[in-house]
Write a protein that binds this DNA or RNA. Structure first.
Lengths: 153, 153
DNA sequence: TTTCGTGCAAAACCTTTGCAAAGTG
DNA sequence: CACTTTGCAAAGGTTTTGCACGAAA
């Protein structure tokens, strides 16, 4: 969709490239560039797979960032549209980058909770059906659950 | 299975009929028939639509049933396979009767959280695809969200 | 400098657990 | 009677809020 003409060494979807785009959005939302936020975004853009707030906190642990700060950051990021919240039914909120990636769903291991992404979604048409039922701002949440091969042994 | 000899007036799917079937299952699971449990099941079989534990508690309020009891009851019912847990992404567990109804999904109002059931599910075939990816015990969770007509005014 | 973000502490919130008393089969 | 279930109190775990200090623009 977008061309990236004069930046030879960055592949499309490189963490650095994504991060700059993201920071543009965040700036537009009036959010300042701080160390905790950079650390959190770095995790989310390098390792990808939805992470709970606690997992994020653990991953930025050596930076001595408060758990509360992580909560506030992901909340701000979600509101800015940069993060997507995923619910896997265990009452724990998980977040993944929304930018760059399009709408998709996950397969979640019932044992280790690790999530894998599914590329396409065949449900957009169903959203239209729901709209015809009288609903506005329609969207959907779809997750598959199973026991992954690693956890079957 | 169940003997309710002297109650002639049961249609199939009447609340009373459903309740007797349910109690048969619960008995089989070793669960005793108590007043709190009857009250909770009555709510779930007459009004239908997934309810949170707190909503259930409010609905049986005049019976002076403890919140904790409601938690324990729905947990026991879910384990017995009589209730199905629904997650609408707001970190609150909601329950609806599983018995009699087949696998289905919901449309949830983003404003009032009221849920409507969708009859059919086209995703069973996708479960097979996930199995081919190496997952066992595959299932899925699908919910649609929107603003219902009542909440649009 | 003015506004926003952070850390710390404490609270709010939903849910679970322990235990003695009451109820069920 | 043996056993389960309840109520109450208290704890657990995740998330939110208040406030003073520190950092960004």
């Amino acid at each position: 969709m977008k061309s990236r003409p004069s930046v030879p060494k960055k592949r499309a979807h490189s963490p650095e490239a994504d991060l700059e785009e993201i920071w543009a959005v965040l700036k537009g939302a009036g959010l300042r560039r701080t160390e905790p936020r950079e650390a959190i975004l770095l995790i989310l853009s390098t390792e990808h797979g939805p992470f709970s707030v606690e997992e994020l906190h653990a991953k930025v642990a050596r930076k001595k960032i408060d758990l509360v700060t992580v909560y506030r950051c992901v909340a701000a990021f979600e509101e800015a549209g940069v993060l997507r919240r995923c619910d896997f039914g265990d009452q724990i909120a998980r977040y993944e980058l929304a930018a760059g990636h399009h709408h998709h769903h996950h397969v979640v291991c019932r044992s280790c909770q690790k999530a894998e992404s599914l590329d396409d979604c065949v449900l957009e048409q169903l959203d239209r059906t729901i709209e015809k039922m009288g609903y506005a701002k329609v969207g959907h949440r779809l997750e598959f659950f199973g026991v992954c091969s690693k956890c079957q042994g």
